[in-house]
Amino acid sequence: MTLSLSLTVNGERHDIELEDARPTLLDVLRERLGLTDTKKGCDRGQCGACTVLLDGRRVNSCLTLAMSADGAAVTTIEGVADGGTLHPVQAAFIENDAFQCGYCTPGQIMSAIGLIAEGDAGTDPERIREGMSGNICRCAAYPGITDAVLDAQTRLAQSQRKSA
């Protein structure tokens, strides 16, 4: 028996046939849709490398059954830039040296976008570190990550003021 899954990923609708209900959202994104920038780190929800936005909320895609996301909107790291223009969080990560090896960076950026959108980042570095604590960086680029989130919030606030 096949199961029908419908997802809107980065603004594009995908209808996917699954042979069973066990594949995770991460596996569907990587293996069925070819969106391999979302990383499989621990595959246990402990590292955050697989973070995506599901209907605007941060989730570990390795713990999310794809079928539970049927009908949802998914945003991956591939969908945050606007053509050749980086998302403000991506630009802030580059300018604040918020990565070293880069493996965790897609999940870190997606988590930062979600944290800012949720309104939980604030301006206190400790609060940001707590909000980003589900994302592990083995290279320990945490000071740059915290600075990037602070910087990105400022960029996004300025952008919103200009467009208002």
Rank of each mutant, 00 (worst) to 15 (best):
G107Q: 12
G107R: 14
G107H: 13
G107P: 15
Q108K: 07
Q108S: 12
Q108R: 12
I109W: 07
I109E: 11
I109L: 06
S111A: 10
S111P: 14
S111F: 02
S111H: 06
S111V: 02
S111G: 12
A112N: 11
A112R: 10
I113Q: 10
I113R: 11
I113C: 10
G114C: 10
G114I: 03
G114K: 09
G114T: 04
L115D: 07
L115W: 05
L115I: 11
I116R: 05
I116A: 08
I116Q: 09
I116S: 07
A117D: 11
G119R: 07
G119Y: 03
G119H: 09
G119S: 01
G119Q: 08
G119M: 06
D120Q: 06
D120M: 04
D120C: 06
D120I: 03
A121L: 04
A121H: 03
G122T: 13
G122Q: 14
G122W: 07
T123E: 10
T123Y: 04
T123K: 08
D124N: 12
D124S: 08
D124L: 03
P125Q: 01
P125R: 00
P125N: 00
R127P: 05
R127W: 00
R127T: 04
R127S: 04
I128P: 08
I128S: 03
I128C: 05
I128E: 01
R129N: 00
E130Q: 04
M132N: 06
S133Q: 14
S133G: 12
S133M: 06
N135V: 01
I136A: 02
I136Y: 02
I136Q: 02
I136W: 00
C137F: 08
C137T: 11
R138L: 05
R138N: 05
C139V: 03
C139P: 08
A140W: 04
A140I: 13
A141T: 12
A141V: 07
A141D: 13
Y142S: 03
Y142K: 02
G144K: 04
G144D: 08
I145C: 13
T146I: 11
T146K: 00
T146P: 01
T146D: 00
D147L: 10
A148H: 15
V149L: 07
L150F: 09
L150S: 07
D151S: 13
D151R: 14
A152F: 15
A152N: 15
A152S: 15
A152H: 15
A152G: 15
Q153H: 13
Q153I: 14
T154L: 04
T154M: 05
R155K: 13
R155D: 11
L156K: 09
L156E: 09
A157I: 07
A157Y: 09
A157C: 08
A157V: 14
Q158F: 11
Q158Y: 09
S159C: 13
Q160S: 15
Q160G: 12
Q160T: 14
R161Y: 07
K162M: 15
K162Y: 12
